[in-house]
């Protein structure tokens, strides 16, 4: 994650904590309850911190208000995919029928009604493929092992909040997590 100070008006200690360009240390706090995680994230957001990440075994949508980034571009991409699908489906069917424009049985080579099926199916197909690709891009799908700071417990029953900082900022980070009532604090 990119480290930045978003708000120059924030307290001096917090500015010191997040002034480095690249995080050297990850300070992780763990929580057994999603509500504790939500409150901790909200506390960090209120302090205008940009560099933290939440982890948990359930879709973490309900803590969204405490996170800096909200929503997703996936829905917009799905909509664009759907539009491309319907246009592409009709265009393919219409264009290919004009390539072989023999009049058979007195019927015109092109016909809109049967092409509705093609347009309809391609709308869904292209929208879904777009959704999958967008999700893969957003969630950074790569067949690689998780980084060392990832705790396997996050897949089971533990929630986590990771603060990314430099070595000189570790004490501040620990203090912030302690104030957030983290049950355990680890450094990576």
């Amino acid at each position: 994650m990119r480290l930045a100070i978003l708000d120059k008006m924030q307290p001096e200690a917090v500015q010191r904590l997040f002034e480095a360009k690249r995080p050297e240390v990850t300070v992780a706090g763990t929580f057994s309850d999603i509500h504790a995680l939500e409150q901790a994230a909200q506390r960090l957001k209120d302090a205008h911190l940009a560099e933290y990440e939440a982890f948990g075994p359930v879709p973490l949508v309900e803590i969204e208000s405490g996170m800096r980034r909200q929503g997703s571009f996936v829905r917009a991409v799905a909509t664009m995919g759907g539009v491309a699908g319907v246009v592409g489906g009709f265009a393919l069917a219409l264009w290919s029928s004009t390539l072989y424009d023999l009049v058979v049985g007195g019927k015109p080579p092109t016909a809109l009604v049967p092409y509705v099926v093609v347009g309809y199916e391609l709308t869904i197909l292209v929208a879904c493929i777009s959704t999958f690709i967008a999700t893969g891009h957003g969630a950074k799908f790569l067949p690689v092992p998780p980084p060392p700071e990832f705790m396997a417990r996050y897949s089971s029953d533990t929630f986590g909040l990771h603060l990314y900082c430099t070595k000189t900022q570790v004490d501040e980070a620990r203090r912030l997590l302690e104030e957030s009532e983290a049950e355990e604090i680890h450094e990576f």
């Binding site: 990440e53 939440a54 879709p59 949508v61 929208a127 879904c128 957003g138 969630a139 998780p146 996050y154």
Partner: peptide, 24 residues
Amino acid sequence: LGWQQRYEQWRHYARAYACFACLA
């Protein structure tokens, strides 16, 4: 695919799941 149960992944995932449900 490198899933880490991160919020950054969940926020896209949750929307994608709903999109897939709507489209399916």
